[in-house]
Amino acid sequence: MILVFMEHREGKVKKSSLETLSEGKRRADELGLEVCAVLIGHEVDNLASETLPYGAAKVFVLENSLLSRYSSSGYAQALFTLAEEVKPKILLFSATAMGKDLAPRCAAKMGVSMASECTGTAVQNGSLTFIRPIYAGKAFITVGLSGIPQVATLRPNVFPLVEAQQNGGEIVKKEVAIGENQIKAQLEEIVRQEGSELDVTEAEIIISGGRGMKGAENFDLLRDLSKLLPHSAVGASRSAVDSGWIDHQHQVGQTGKTVSPNLYLAIGISGAIQHLAGMSSSKKIVAVNKDHEAPIFKVADFGVVGDLFQILPPFKEELKKVLSE
């Protein structure tokens, strides 16, 4: 069995978990295994039906009132208990903040090594191999994992969502035993960021500003564009973050976030190696820069040479026109 952990927040299953389930289904078919999903929480069985279209043979719903809030140790214990029973060969997570926190804790509990933030999987000689970036995407390795289960996290926005032919999965509810002492840390509250814009790792379009933006107030130019474009987010170079123009949550690059959106717009960003490391796996890259020799143009599918302050206003107007058509 390939088991896929389904993350949910605010009463919805995460899209990236469904992407992971889609990839699980694809590989399960090739390997002659079945793919199953697991949801953890309290009163979450209504979410199980959201996962059925993606081909899960079973959706396990692990219930316990102590699991109503995320807890790395509690969730790891619940997954461990299930894995003891159903013995998955492969256990997959989406590489979200929660997936990255939980997967290594689970892997260690099961005594196995794992592969982080994979951007590909492949079947080789009857077993699954994992492709993942290292050195922030300056190199890629294909690894085999000898432990069972093979544990991996898959990067969001990389694997396509695929609905399965059949939609006949079974929902299996299980009450898991968790002791209070197994909740090692308490989640007190979730503090929303101001404006609660979409996170860059989840966005399909990223509009990033660099030192060329000249000041914090000018990031409103980018926020205005983001408001026009669905599923978009505002990103930034480290220079912009270090200048205090925007919060570091928005930073893209080797010491920021690694992203692979459908479109990356680099506005007033030179394209330093640390920045490129974080965004060069974007599907399309557009750069606006007044220096026609800026290194960002070497990776851009479309380069606009000019002053961003002169280009952004007419760009916004043109965009509105096309979007309203």
Binding site: A115, G137, A139, H292, K298, V299
Partner: peptide, 25 residues
């Protein structure tokens, strides 16, 4: 190690695309 590195490669080179200059509009 329980991990075997089967292959290591560089990312595909990105090709520089079109570059345009001219009037902002």
């Amino acid at each position: 190690p329980q991990i075997s590195v089967l292959k290591m490669e560089s990312p595909p080179e990105r090709q520089a695309g079109r570059k345009i200059e001219g009037e902002p509009q």
